[in-house]
């Protein structure tokens, strides 16, 4: 077995042990699928779909899209300047750099749903606290991603901008932003997609949108509506993915 070293087998053994314990902890048992008839019976109640509430559903879908969009756009707008302070090669001072790093990872470590639950207490139910929750988390995530892009950027143009006598912040902005822009957009669209899924979950805790409708339809056993909700969500996610790759290709 010329391809393998002893350490490969040790890795394999460790992996096997981890998989075993994870299966124990999650009660992973494929034989439970013998009751899959229940599932088929349940899914059969989803059809035919109930189209009577379609206009309201579309309105809720737009609300979800708006939540995700605002949360990601505001997140990006705030994260972009912060990430220049959180990147080693552009931070105005070492102290600020460290503070930004700590701040961003703190914000990132709090899940959106926790922000949502906390904000509900002051902002009440509805999409507004969900937008803020998504925005806060996105600041943390995009701040980290963009600051890493900044650190990986070619230092040459930055040096050239310093050499013509431009102010430091202007030199950083002009030399680095054009380099990282396509990747920034990529990250933005990915985060937008994630934000759609997140806003569905936030709907479950009263954040509005199609997520809340799905949750309510489910809780009131209106499965013919649930199926249409799910279909709308799928179409929405695919459409956003499609538009995202279209814009990315236009930019690159």
């Amino acid at each position: 077995m010329v391809w393998f070293k002893k350490s490969n087998f040790i890795t394999l053994a460790v992996l096997a042990v981890l998989v075993y314990f994870s299966m124990r902890l999650t009660e992973f048992d494929l034989s439970k699928f013998r009751d899959f008839r229940n599932m088929i019976e349940f899914l059969s109640q989803w059809f035919p779909m109930n189209f009577s509430e379609l206009p309201d559903m579309v309105e809720d879908m737009l609300e979800t899209l708006a939540m995700a969009f605002l949360g990601s756009v505001f997140g990006l707008l705030i994260a972009l300047p912060l990430s220049f302070a959180a990147a080693r090669n552009t931070a105005p001072s070492k102290t600020l750099y460290n503070l930004m790093r700590i701040g961003l990872s703190f914000v990132r470590s709090v899940p959106e749903i926790v922000f949502g639950l906390i904000l509900l207490t002051t902002l009440g139910l509805g999409p507004f606290p969900a937008v803020i929750a998504i925005m806060l988390h996105n600041i943390g995530v995009m701040g980290k991603l963009i600051s890493e892009l900044i650190e990986a950027a070619d230092p040459g143009p930055q040096e050239a901008m310093k050499a013509v006598g431009a102010k430091n912040w202007l030199a950083s902005l002009f030399s680095i932003l054009p380099q990282i822009w396509p990747n920034v957009l990529s990250n933005f669209f990915y985060r937008f997609e994630v934000a759609i899924r997140t806003s569905l979950i936030l709907g479950f805790i009263g954040g509005g949108g199609i997520g809340q409708r799905l949750f309510n339809d489910f809780k009131t056993f209106q499965y013919a509506s649930v199926s249409l909700d799910v279909l709308i969500i799928m179409v929405m996610v695919i459409a956003v993915d499609f538009i995202g790759s279209f814009v990315r290709n236009r930019v690159i």
Binding site: G156, P157, E159, V164, P178, Q179
Partner: peptide
């Protein structure tokens, strides 16, 4: 003081 570089160091895009 003008300066030119080995890798040109132009601003992409």
């Amino acid at each position: 003081v003008g300066m030119i570089f080995q890798h040109f160091n132009l601003i992409p895009r």
